[in-house]
Computed example of a mutant assay.
Amino acid sequence: MARALWFFPVPDEADLPERLRGLFAKARETVGLVPNVFRAYAYRPERLSAWFAHYKMLHEPTENLDRADREMIAVVVSAYNRCTYCIVSHGHALRKALGGRREDQVLADYIATNWRHAGLDPRRYAICDYAEKLTARPHEMTDDDLQRLADVGLSPHEVWDVAEIAAMYNFTNRMALATGQLPNEEYHYLDR
């Protein structure tokens, strides 16, 4: 089974700043657990605050880029990077954002495994294609890649969001992999 949590010592929750204790409490209330990424980042509490504020901004739904689309980007990037933590945790979030029905669970699993086999509509296909290209071949990005997102109905702000979400998850995946973060076991069972 999975190895014990990580190289860096995890601070006692009581020793964290009040705002982070509040974040942990809110996570317990809404998700039913404190995500291990919070515990890992608590090693550097000031950075957890900055990272989480950025995360929250990027996951605010807009007219043409909903919560499921944003989680889908996280899953596609994480799958390409083979980041177990983010595939599992954002796979759960994607299942939930898609609606939680059986077919939504199947779709989320297809997206996490190989999004090209998921039967996505042209808008979601373009979003996944962009996210994967930015992850795999960032040096090949051109204005045409951005234009393809606009062509499927995303506003300039939403095109920016797709790029920023993909870039943020590349960073987050690398930190999770670099610091040995593992997903909470509960994520494997939630909403299934």
Rank of each mutant, 00 (worst) to 15 (best):
A167Y: 01
L154A: 10
E186F: 00
Y130F: 14
W51I: 11
Y55T: 10
R102E: 15
Y55F: 13
P11H: 08
Q181I: 13
L146W: 02
L154Y: 01
Y80V: 02
P17T: 14
E46I: 01
P122F: 09
R82P: 08
A178C: 10
D145K: 02
P156D: 11
Y189R: 13
P122H: 05
E140A: 13
G99D: 14
R39P: 11
E71V: 00
V162Y: 06
G22W: 00
A93G: 12
E29M: 05
L33R: 12
K56W: 01
H139Q: 11
A25I: 10
G119L: 02
Q105V: 15
L23V: 03
Q105N: 15
V77I: 06
I87C: 13
G32V: 03
W160T: 06
L146N: 07
A97S: 13
A97H: 06
L190R: 01
L98Q: 10
G100W: 04
Q181P: 04
A126N: 08
M57D: 09
M57S: 09
T142H: 05
D104C: 02
A166T: 06
M141P: 05
E158I: 00
A50V: 07
Y41A: 13
A176Q: 06
D121L: 02
Q181C: 07
E164M: 12
V34G: 08
A2V: 00
G32Q: 11
V77N: 06
D161I: 00
H157K: 07
A93S: 13
K96F: 10
M57P: 03
L58W: 01
D129H: 03
E132Y: 03
C83E: 08
A50M: 09
T30V: 06
L5K: 04
A166F: 02
A2H: 02
R95E: 13
H59T: 08
T113E: 14
W115H: 12
N170E: 08
L146Q: 06
V76I: 08
Y169I: 01
R47K: 10
T172D: 05
N64K: 03
P61W: 00
A4G: 12
R39Q: 13
V34C: 04
C86S: 11
M141D: 05
I73Y: 00
R116D: 11
Y169P: 05
R174I: 04
V106K: 14
R3V: 09
G153S: 11
Y130V: 03
C86Y: 04
S89R: 01
I165R: 04
A25P: 15
L5E: 12
P61Q: 01
A53V: 05
A112L: 03
D191V: 09
N184L: 03
H90M: 03
A136H: 06
K133Y: 03
R28T: 12
E140Q: 12
E158K: 02
E63R: 07
N184K: 01
L190G: 03
A2T: 00
D129P: 01
R95L: 07
L98I: 11
T30M: 07
A150Q: 10
F38D: 09
A40Y: 04
T135A: 04
K96E: 12
E46D: 15
L182N: 01
D151L: 03
T62S: 14
T179F: 12
W51V: 14
E158Q: 05
P45F: 08
T179S: 12
V162C: 10
M72H: 03
L20E: 14
L16P: 07
V152H: 10
D143Q: 09
D69G: 09
L5N: 12
L149H: 07
Y55W: 13
A79T: 07
F7T: 15
